[in-house]
């Protein structure tokens, strides 16, 4: 199968700051592609550039054969790209059910109720919380809600930004399984951004590694797991370094 998404020489700026320095990536249809990298490498910016929240100064984003760079994010979403941003961006004062309904805002078919039940079958906890306001959910539940809401779009491509962040190891396990099931059962192509390299390499088929705005390595996830650099910098360091960082990240998302 061909590529659902192709990035070619993307350069994206925050004002004068160049965050992405010529990134090219291929996301084959039906696959899970993992994007690894340390804090500030530019992973989130890549996703924002794909979903239209940011416009690249240079380069092209081709989705399903069509250039989409510079389009509004709602336009991109309506064409089947569901971005689940970092930090569990739910609609805090809407109920769980309403959050899911909003995920289907652009749809006019009559399968919406059915898809909400499908989301509840992936995340049974949410079913007991249908009437609760999203703000009252735990962090893990909000993350599930954000993923579930993205599913309501019936996306062809899902952009997941650090879904495991701040979750317990058990929940990380659970989310990994769900990501794999979404890919195999729903046929959703997934671009997964993670600092949790172990999880990302287990789940993904193909992987890219980013450092300060550039892709520095790419290979199948199986081979990346064997690469000594990766073992040293991303898998080995996990025990102390990323933990501490993770706690800091958690606070950042409180805002």
């Amino acid at each position: 199968m061909g590529n659902l998404l192709e990035l070619r020489n993307i350069e994206t700026y925050y004002g004068p700051v160049m965050a992405i320095r010529g990134v090219s990536m291929d996301i084959p249809e039906g696959k899970i592609v993992s994007l690894l990298g340390a804090n500030g490498a530019g992973k989130t910016t890549v996703l924002k550039t794909i979903s239209g929240a940011m416009e690249p100064q240079k380069g092209s984003v081709t989705y399903a054969g069509q250039p989409i760079q510079g389009k509004d994010p709602d336009w991109v979403a309506r064409r089947g790209v569901a971005h689940v941003p970092e930090g569990r961006e739910v609609f805090p004062f809407l109920s769980v059910d309403e959050n899911l309904q909003m995920g289907a805002f652009s749809r006019s078919d009559n399968k919406i109720r059915q898809d909400i039940d499908m989301v509840y079958s992936y995340f049974p906890i949410l079913k007991d919380l249908t009437k609760s306001q999203a703000v009252n959910l735990s962090g893990g539940q909000q993350q599930m809600l954000a993923i579930g809401r993205a599913l309501m779009l019936r996306p062809k491509l899902m952009l997941l930004d650090e879904p495991s962040l701040g979750l317990s190891p058990r929940l990380v396990q659970e989310i990994s399984k769900i990501i794999q099931r979404l890919n195999s059962e729903q046929g959703v192509t997934i671009l997964l951004v993670e600092q949790n390299a172990k999880m990302a390499l287990n789940v993904g088929h193909y992987g890219y590694v980013m450092e300060v705005g550039r892709i520095v390595m790419e290979d199948s996830c199986a081979r990346l797991q064997q690469a000594t650099d990766i073992q040293e910098f991303y898998l080995g360091m996990k025990e102390q370094g990323v933990r501490g960082r993770r706690r800091w990240k958690q606070r950042k998302t409180w805002r």
Binding site: S51, G52, A53, D72, P73, D74, A77, R78, A82, H83, V84, P85, E89, V90, F91, P92, F93, L94, E98, Q101, M102, G103, F105, S106, A146, R149, A150, M152, L153
Partner: peptide, 22 residues
């Protein structure tokens, strides 16, 4: 639906964009 979407857009603009609310 539109009323709830207006609430959604005012509660979290970015998320509203990402779910395809104009």
């Amino acid at each position: 639906r539109v009323g709830i979407a207006m609430q959604a857009a005012s509660q979290n603009q970015l998320a509203a964009f990402y779910v395809g609310i104009p």
